[in-house]
Design a protein around this nucleic acid. Structure first.
Length: 868
RNA sequence: GCCCGGGUGGCGGAAUGGCAUACGCGGCAGACUUAAAAUCUGCUGUCCCUCACGGGGCAUGUGGGUUCGACCCCCACCCCGGGCACCA
């Protein structure tokens, strides 16, 4: 180099601040619904603002931001908003600990989170920011609640709930992990009976299940599977067994998916909490011992309920029931493995055809009659066919293991000889006809308990009046505000109940004194519809304007962790269906495409504050700059896989960006001052001449020029594919690195590569980096002489002509082993390639004394000579 | 137990039927420098033959199979990670 002026050096801190400011001034990412433009709604799951942000958080937003920026460059009107899941327990706990207000703690965290996100240059439309703890937001939670109350979708019932003694609140079933609290891994959950508010998710069981079909192909398969299992549809039948020896005319209803095995039932087993148990025991001959055993089981069941390994325990009630199909008298038992919450809380035990029943029967020496076999043995077939029934097929010996598959019924009266599926249909129909049963579908899914006995959540808008009973708060009185100064102790009754100025109110109907509901809502309510609010965040008349939602929805791309695969996404889908029925929207699924990114780990475990293995986002930005952090999280692993953070590897990303910066800085002057740069629009360009370059600039290319131009467009072609269809950001970056290496390999460029071509290479390089390292790309773009910022720039198109190789290397295999390579012109036919291959000395050696029996030819790639 | 994902150099990973190990990290050697840092260049799976130039064999968890050709497709198994787990 001849010049003596010092080259500028890459200073991310300066560059990043500069461009963030410009984007803000230019309102570069603000967006409005505009039906004349194609829209794209990309969203990352909203964060719970607690602690400080680490690179695990940033990975999520980086992926989303790349998508948002690529789509913008592709001409879409992009909605990319951000907000805060701001209600929740930690704020309240922190408030108790620090004697502050939850709002204070929350707002402080939000401010910090926001600063970090801004520092990473994510292209959010900040005007649309929402915070779920603000009355402007949570009043609409209340509004939705009232609509559901009107439709009977919100109701109150006394129910057994999980109670965490540390949280002092009710936990949802799904917040209980193997009997322990999801937040306090060492705290065992207790069972209590409390009046609770529920949302009727079960009203949509069928729809929630069916519509999963609409998501196939665009949602990860495992998320769909998890939801399907969670909803847990079972088709079966209810059957009533009359109790034969109490004289009270009671009957027990069981649920079974295998009514075809009913002739093999050797007992009825009730859940320990089944309401009939007490009645059965009242005058039972075995009353004393049974009650002792029941007490034992009840005591144990709370603890053992969630332990799958618990041994089956049970006892005989001393009573019997009659099988309606064959009038057999079978004993009624109580078993700890029968769940009151599922089905009817009672089962018929068919030991020969159910693993659990088998285990139970073995322990308590109940008979195991076989009533289904795999198939008739071939030699017996004739006999069976003419036999009236298949009774004699089965040996009387007790089975050694249960046969749980479908097969053929035997020893089943008129149903013997039928295939299981047929028998199930027929027997259910007969049961219905005779009035002791019917077909029934049962779901595992339960209603969503939303009551929380906590302060920092949405107050449930209901008032209790002595005269009028429960009264809904009228819409005009919304929002029901949280009292500003609660007494937060973390103990005893809920904070709202302890705040008289909140509790005591007047009845909206009669004006008399009344009391408010003191439960607040589960925070999953907030996150079930927040993405609708982004479309119209400041609407004070309605949760949103339906026209705006109609434009933006569904969400084109939702990005988040797999941890929300069930609850958040299921509740969101439920909310959508309710809103659809309310006539607020006209789509049935809110999220068209879902992507679940991998975790960021350090030392093999997920980054988390409690583990102390976090890499702080601020420190990252401070040390290397946001662009390096963004690039590294994209480069180190494919987005769906877990990423192991390495302090050493990140240096590579940092070095690469420096390398690009130096390259552009070195040639910026030459390139940007070249007035001859042709930027003819593609439409005016003559054929075979790529856009952006005039034919004059393309004549008489030297081999080096041609090769650089070719590499540039080959890279562009593959990077475009990686961005658009595969989301392989890591390999896209590898390709961009290769291009950079190639440009360096052509140094010195001056005098060897004409400026138009240098410019072409450097500009395309910059544009390809733009979605990933936007600050650096803007800076480079400016250095290259552009006055307009990159945010207005379109994604570049590649030219097939320029990307095409005119000479290719074809691999020559002999019997499938690589033995050499030949250079031929692109598109050379088989004869030509084979001729060249034979001419190669080393290949000739391998072919010596052999006869070519077959030739496999893949144009421009490979020829395989099969020789003997 | 059941379901899903994964197993490729010293490390992160690339290649979805056609040159395995791209790209990056680390390592080694060299250039520049008084020196260091930074930067640049080259080498870097493994074994064997060769002074060398070269050449050959073997390698994508294991064992089989399909194919002219397999990291890729099929079958069986092992290991790791995650989810579900008495749902009748």
């Amino acid at each position: 180099m001849t010049e003596h002026t010092p080259q500028p050096t890459y200073n991310p801190r300066e560059i990043e601040a500069k461009w963030q400011k410009r984007w803000e001034t230019a309102r570069a990412f603000e967006t409005e619904a505009d039906p004349s433009k194609p829209k794209y709604y990309v969203l990352e799951m909203l964060p719970y603002p607690s602690g400080t942000m680490h690179m695990g958080h940033m990975r999520n937003y980086t992926i989303g931001d790349v998508v948002a920026r690529v789509k913008r460059m592709r001409g879409f009107n992009v909605l990319h908003p951000m907000g805060w899941d701001a209600f929740g327990l930690p704020a309240e706990n922190a408030a108790i600990k620090n004697k502050t207000h939850p709002r204070e703690w929350t707002n402080k965290n939000i401010a910090e989170f926001q600063r970090t996100l801004r520092r990473f240059g994510f292209s959010f439309d900040w005007r649309r920011e929402i915070s779920t703890c603000e009355p402007e937001y949570y009043r609409w939670n209340q509004w939705f609640f009232l609509r559901m109350l009107e439709k009977g979708l919100a109701y109150k019932k006394k129910s057994r709930v999980n109670w965490c003694p540390k949280c002092c609140t009710v936990l949802a079933n799904e917040q209980v992990i193997n009997g322990f609290c999801w937040r306090h891994e060492d705290t065992q959950v207790e069972v209590r009976e409390i009046e609770q508010w529920f949302l009727k998710t079960t009203a949509y069981s069928e729809q929630l299940l069916d519509d999963l079909k609409l998501l196939e192909g665009t949602w990860p398969e495992r998320v769909i599977t998890m939801q399907r299992n969670w909803i847990g549809k079972s088709q079966g039948a209810r059957v009533q067994f009359a109790v034969s020896d109490t004289g009270g005319g009671e009957s027990i209803e069981v649920f079974t998916t295998r009514i075809d095995t009913i002739f093999g039932a050797s007992a009825i087993i009730l859940a320990p909490t089944h309401p009939l148990v007490a009645k059965l025991l009242r005058d039972s001959p075995v009353k004393a011992e049974a009650e002792t055993k029941l007490a034992q089981i009840r005591k144990m069941s709370v603890k053992a309920e969630d332990l799958a390994t618990a041994e089956k325990e049970g006892f005989f009630t001393g009573r019997h029931a009659v099988n309606p199909f064959n009038n057999a008298r079978i004993p009624i038992w109580v078993g700890n493995f029968v769940l009151m919450e599922y089905g009817t809380g009672a089962i018929m035990a068919v030991p020969a055809h159910d693993e659990r029943d088998f285990e139970f029967a073995t322990k308590y020496h109940l008979p195991k009659p076989v009533v289904v076999i795999k198939e008739f043995s071939p030699h017996a077939e004739k006999e069976i066919a003419k036999a009236e029934h298949a009774e004699k097929e089965v040996p009387p010996a007790a089975p050694t293991e249960p046969f749980t598959e479908y097969g053929v019924s035997v020893n089943s009266g008129p149903y013997s000889g039928l295939e299981s599926a047929v028998a199930i249909d027929k027997m259910a129909a007969d049961a219905q006809a005779q009035g002791f049963g019917k077909k029934e579908t049962v779901f595992r899914l339960r209603d969503w308990g939303i009551s929380r006995q906590r302060y920092w959540g949405t107050p449930i808008p209901v008032i209790y009046c002595e005269k009028d009973g429960m009264v809904a708060v009228p819409d005009k009185d919304l929002p029901v505000l949280l009292p500003p100064n609660p007494k937060l102790t973390g103990e005893g009754e809920s904070p709202l109940a302890a705040t008289p100025e909140f509790v005591n109110t007047t009845c909206p109907k009669c004006g008399g004194s009344a009391k408010r509901e003191t439960d607040t809502m589960d925070t999953f309510v907030d996150s079930s519809w927040y993405f609708y609010r982004y479309c119209d965040p400041h609407n004070s008349q309605a949760p949103f304007d339906s026209a705006k939602v109609k434009y933006w929805f569904p969400i084109d791309q939702y990005i988040g962790g797999i941890t929300h695969a069930i609850l958040h996404l299921l509740y969101s889908r439920f909310w959508c269906k309710v809103m659809c029925d309310l006539g607020l929207i006209d789509h049935v699924e809110p999220i068209a495409r879902l992507f679940t990114q991998g975790m960021v780990q350090k030392g093999g475990v997920a980054m988390s504050k409690s583990r102390g293995n976090v890499v702080g986002a601020e420190e990252m930005a401070e040390k290397y700059g946001a662009d390096t952090g963004r690039l590294y999280t994209l480069f180190a692993a494919p987005p769906e896989k877990d990423l192991e953070w390495s302090e050493e590897s990140i240096e590579g990303s940092w070095r690469f960006l420096n390398r690009v910066f130096r390259l552009v800085a070195k040639h910026a002057a030459t390139v940007s001052s070249t007035g001859t740069l042709a930027c003819a629009p593609a439409t005016n360009a003559p054929q075979n001449v790529p856009f952006g370059i005039t034919s004059a600039a393309l004549t008489n290319l030297t081999a080096r020029e041609q090769s650089l131009l070719r590499k540039t467009h080959q890279t562009l072609r593959r990077v475009t594919q990686d961005f658009e269809t595969r989301w392989h950001f890591n390999s896209a970056i590898a390709l961009i690195m290769e291009l950079t290496n190639e440009i360096y390999a052509q140094e010195p460029l001056e005098g060897n590569i004409r400026p138009e071509i240098t410019r072409e290479a450097l500009e395309k390089l910059t544009l390809m980096l733009a979605p990933m390292t936007p600050h650096l790309a803007e800076e480079l773009w400016e250095m290259l002489g552009h006055k307009e910022g990159l945010s207005a720039e379109a994604w570049p198109q590649f030219s097939e002509d320029l990307a095409r190789e005119n000479e290719v290397e074809v691999v020559v295999q002999i019997n499938g082993r690589v033995r050499g390579k030949v250079k031929v012109s692109a598109g050379a036919d088989q004869d030509e390639v084979v001729a060249q291959a034979k001419a190669d000395a080393s290949i000739a050696t391998h072919l010596a004394g052999k006869q070519i029996k077959k030739i496999i030819f893949v144009p421009d790639k490979l020829v395989n000579l099969v020789a003997q």
